[in-house]
Simulated scan of single mutants.
Amino acid sequence: MADNVKIGLIQASNDVDGNQPVEVHKQRAIEKHLRLVREAKEKGAQIISLQEIFYGPYFCLEQNTKWYDAAEEIPNGPTTKLFQELAKELSVVIVLPIYERVGIATYYNTAAIIDADGSYLGKYRKQHIPHVGVGNEGYGFWEKFYFKPGNLGYPVFDTAFAKVGVYICYDRHFPEGARILGLKGAEIVLNPSATVAGLSEYLWKLEQPAHAVANGYYLGAINRVGTEGPWNMGEFYGQSYLVDPRGNFVAMGSRDCDEVIIGEVNKKMIREVRDTWQFYRDRRPETYQEMSELLP
């Protein structure tokens, strides 16, 4: 593998009102992202990540069983298969975050990882599921209504260009999984998100660079843009970025525009940073046993 790898982070608005049927959202969003993936390829991207549940609005702002119809099987659902064909055509790796259905009615917030030859490498299921109200109109991050917690651990995928780990949105507040991804050899961790201005915006450029520094890898954070009706709970503030293992921002997106952000991973830097700081050598796992036993 080459030492330098170009990363494409896709942030986009959802331009169909949430009152529309699920299939209207999916069709429009998929068509938009097919174009944006091609744009990323034209700009040199080799690994491309889309935003959290990219093919529609962030419907978790309400609790409505209508949105269960957005879920698909992975990898046998139509969206995964479509993007497998695209990845093979363009020779790119795609991190594809979609709403997953297992069996009759079990649901996860999942990202499928597709290699540059179009093969399906596996999936990551979001581990940490928020469920909090915001404001006085019944809106909130009602994710436990839609998703079970992930049960596949923290896999690292050996793609054609780099070893890739995935976190999804709220996971970013928990350093434990971020460390596991580093221990398993991740060279870049991608975090597809859907987060609005206000409560945690100040953490957006704080927590994830800290994960990159503490664990000696690159981290790509992806957030959608715009406001989404009928909820209009807040502005999705974009600012998708790639940060290096020293905490430097390599590339940063705008706050309010559909955009393909391109940044470059330098694997030599990963080795240099890990050789310098030796955090993995100096950690003391035998002293951390009580962490999993302590209650809040």
Rank of each mutant, 00 (worst) to 15 (best):
P285C: 04
V243L: 04
I114H: 02
Y139F: 14
A197M: 12
Y280V: 06
I7G: 01
R271V: 10
L295Y: 11
D258P: 05
V260C: 10
Q289M: 09
F145Q: 06
N19F: 13
I94H: 02
K144D: 09
G56F: 04
E264F: 08
E31G: 01
Q51S: 13
V225K: 03
Y99M: 10
L61S: 02
K41D: 06
S200L: 12
K26V: 09
K123R: 15
A105L: 12
V250H: 03
L199F: 13
N248W: 03
F83R: 00
K268R: 14
H33P: 00
E187I: 04
L199S: 12
A105F: 14
T276G: 01
R125K: 14
D258H: 08
L199Q: 11
Y108D: 00
G133Q: 13
G229S: 13
E62I: 14
G118N: 08
H33L: 14
E62T: 14
G226M: 11
E85P: 00
K26H: 08
E72Y: 09
Y237I: 02
D117F: 06
I113S: 00
W204L: 07
E272K: 07
A111N: 07
K267T: 05
Y107G: 00
A111S: 15
Q208M: 14
L181N: 02
I222F: 04
Q239Y: 05
D282L: 12
I188R: 03
S292I: 14
R255A: 10
H128N: 15
V132R: 13
G135T: 07
K126D: 03
F147C: 04
M233D: 04
V260D: 05
E228F: 12
D3F: 10
G263T: 06
V166G: 03
A178C: 10
R101V: 08
D117H: 06
G140R: 11
L90F: 06
D69R: 13
A186E: 03
W277Q: 02
N19E: 14
G185R: 13
Y170M: 09
G8N: 05
V213G: 01
S91N: 15
V265P: 07
F279Y: 14
V166Y: 05
G103T: 13
K126M: 15
K6N: 09
G247R: 08
Y108I: 01
I262D: 07
F83N: 00
I261E: 01
